[in-house]
Amino acid sequence: MDGGGRVVLAVNGKRSTAKKRANNASVGADDRLVLPRPLRRVFRFCASLATGRIHIPAHTGTASTLVFFSAVGLYGMSLGGHTELVAQATTSAAGFAVEDVKVSGNLQTSEIEVFQLLGLDGATSLIALNVNAARKKLTELPWVEDVEVRKVYPKTIEVRLKERQAFGIWQHGSELSLIEKSGSVIAPLRDNKYAGLPLFVGRDAETGAAGFVDELADWPEIRNRVRAYVRVAGRRWDLHLDNGIVVKLPEENVPKALQLLARLDMEQKILSRDVAAVDLRLSDRTTVQLTEGAAERRQTAVDARSKALKKAEKST
């Protein structure tokens, strides 16, 4: 039995020793520093690099240095605002300098104005040219309504303009301006090239011009004789005809007044007589103002008639 007892003790002793080793191992593992997962790869890479297990190609240091200084240079240019200048110079030297600008659709806008706004100086790079910025600058020209700017490599720019259309001349105070049909001012009137356009005078005349001219479409004989449309107090219109007659239109029911004027002219040739003004402002009566010469002649005729009547009365 003693022999059996020794065997049992030996086995128990081995088990006890293994248990102690396991406990010691777990304590040692708990005491070690465990790196976070992202840092483990970095640590392994540094260890491999230090032991020579990773091969580094030749000239890698030189290339890395060049990349570093290039990045620093680009960052410095960006901070100093010189990036565009450097890009212009680099791409121009590479054969992309703008040498030809094709402008189309410009009847009122000169090509010189286009060149100046684009800032072309013979060294402008086509690659570095900002098309959107160029388009925005060109739309600031007075006559330009819309514009398209295209790059045609390697050295050409195409500029297609859509210009505004002059509808009339607006006189406000002592200033004369060209206006669109919408009433928008295009530019100041500088020469007599547009003398054939209708003249609109007065406050708010430019905004109501197109609508009123369209209202005269049914009376072309009258409209063709109008030389100026004068807006009175922002409420009604006076028509100044080519022979100096002023037609005073009412504030409302303008078509009825124009119809009456057309009938008077057809039946009595009122617009061909020595008349200074035809007043149609009142719906129940029409007032005709004679010219100064016609009024004097009329007064002379009236006086002569009065004298003749008095003389006839005395003789009887």
Rank of each mutant, 00 (worst) to 15 (best):
G196N: 10
D121E: 11
V147A: 09
E148V: 02
T139S: 11
D146S: 14
E267N: 13
A94W: 07
R40Q: 15
T51Q: 11
V72T: 09
G244Y: 10
I157E: 02
H59D: 01
H82V: 09
L138Q: 06
R305E: 13
F45G: 01
E148W: 00
L178R: 06
V114Y: 03
I112H: 04
K307W: 07
A308K: 15
K20W: 00
A47V: 08
L280K: 12
L258W: 05
F68N: 02
I54Q: 08
E148R: 05
T60C: 01
S70T: 14
V213Q: 03
D242R: 02
D218R: 12
A47M: 08
E163F: 10
R236V: 03
I245T: 11
S16T: 04
E158G: 00
D204V: 03
L178Q: 04
N224H: 07
A205S: 13
V278C: 05
A10I: 07
E313C: 02
G105Q: 12
G211Q: 05
S306D: 13
A97L: 05
A294M: 09
T51C: 03
L39R: 15
G3A: 13
L199A: 01
G202F: 11
H82I: 06
E111T: 08
V7D: 12
G122A: 10
L9T: 13
S78F: 06
G173R: 07
Q259D: 05
V226A: 11
T286F: 10
S70A: 14
R32L: 13
L117R: 15
G95W: 14
L258S: 02
A128L: 06
R305I: 01
L39P: 00
V144D: 06
K256W: 03
K314M: 11
R15T: 03
S184Y: 02
N130R: 04
V11Q: 09
G183H: 04
V147D: 12
I179P: 00
R227S: 01
S283F: 09
N192M: 10
D303G: 02
F96D: 01
D204I: 02
G119R: 09
A276D: 08
L199C: 01
F69W: 05
F43P: 00
E252T: 05
Q259A: 06
I186A: 02
L261V: 05
V98S: 04
Q171N: 12
G5D: 11
R6V: 09
D214N: 13
P36G: 15
N243F: 03
G52L: 13
L241N: 02
T60K: 00
P38E: 06
A25D: 08
L79N: 11
E148H: 02
D2P: 11
A228P: 14
A301D: 12
